[in-house]
Computed example of a mutant assay.
Amino acid sequence: MTNNTAVQVPGSRDPAAQSRPPLPMFYQRPSPLDRSRHQTARLRAPSDVDFAALANSLPVMVEEFTLAARDFPILFTDGPVCMAIALLGLRQNQNLFLAERDGKLAWRTECYIPAYVRRYPLVLMETDKPGEFTVCIDEAAEFPEGPAIFESGEMSKAGQEALEFCRAYQNQIVNTQAFGAALQDNGLLDRYNAEIKLESGETFNLTGFLAVNPAKFDALSDEVYLEFRRKGWIGLIHAHIASALNWQRLMALTTLA
């Protein structure tokens, strides 16, 4: 059996959404956070991650590279905006880093949980005014065991911390896009197709992703190398290249799934 898996930026898969900006993955009904409308809303409890079960890839920010590179291959998307992603599974709609524990799906205890998961159900979304964002909550999310966002009509401590996390995450998106653009502008990214064959005979053809070419990185001019070093990007490139070791881990998890 051959499976063709296209690596792409997580977003809405609803064909009806093609005429409007795609919703971020997981978010079905994002609405501006309002203390009256959402007075009983709750945040995600640490154990609530089953909503990520169908995500075979997720964005990772540059601040996460060191931790994410221990567990997942880090790739870059081949599109108008070059974003870094962690590959979580070889099959479509399969996250190999969730496992059943105590009767429910949980993230594997020894593995890093991407900030994209931890941010949910809040998100900063751009308003009609370019460059202006508002905090939204996915009204389709239900986390009865999570901490309350509001208490007695005021933002709770947990709510305040979640909002700060959301704002910090948005800044990380900007930094990560700048990093990806610099890799592209300096010709360091190559397009790759990966064919992976398991002992069972099942074959996976992965397409649509970019990765740093180590030879091109080694040939980087001193001027550009020093600029990358000043920006803290050299370590990120090394982490990305080292993360390729996790392809073997994905293959082993796929065999067990």
Rank of each mutant, 00 (worst) to 15 (best):
R101G: 04
R101T: 08
R101P: 05
D102V: 01
K104V: 14
K104C: 06
K104M: 10
L105Q: 12
A106K: 10
A106L: 09
A106S: 15
A106H: 10
W107P: 06
W107L: 07
R108Q: 14
R108N: 01
T109L: 04
T109Y: 07
E110R: 12
C111S: 15
C111G: 00
C111P: 04
C111W: 02
P114V: 10
P114L: 09
Y116I: 12
V117I: 15
V117Q: 00
R118A: 12
R118N: 13
R119H: 09
P121K: 08
L122Y: 02
V123D: 01
L124A: 12
L124E: 10
M125E: 09
T127Y: 12
D128A: 12
P130T: 11
P130I: 14
G131E: 09
E132A: 11
F133K: 10
T134W: 03
T134C: 05
I137T: 06
I137V: 15
D138W: 05
E139P: 00
E139N: 12
A140G: 09
A141L: 03
E142R: 15
F143M: 06
F143H: 09
P144A: 05
E145M: 11
E145Y: 11
E145L: 13
E145W: 05
G146D: 04
P147A: 05
P147N: 03
P147D: 05
I149M: 01
E151L: 13
E151C: 05
G153N: 02
G153Y: 03
G153W: 03
E154S: 13
E154K: 12
M155P: 03
M155Y: 04
M155V: 10
S156A: 02
S156R: 02
S156F: 02
S156C: 01
K157Y: 05
A158C: 01
A158S: 11
G159I: 01
G159R: 04
Q160D: 05
Q160P: 02
E161G: 00
E161M: 02
L163V: 03
F165H: 05
C166I: 06
A168W: 00
A168P: 00
Y169P: 00
Q170S: 06
Q170V: 01
Q170D: 14
N171H: 13
N171I: 00
N171C: 00
N171T: 07
Q172Y: 07
Q172E: 12
V174C: 09
V174Y: 08
N175Q: 15
N175A: 15
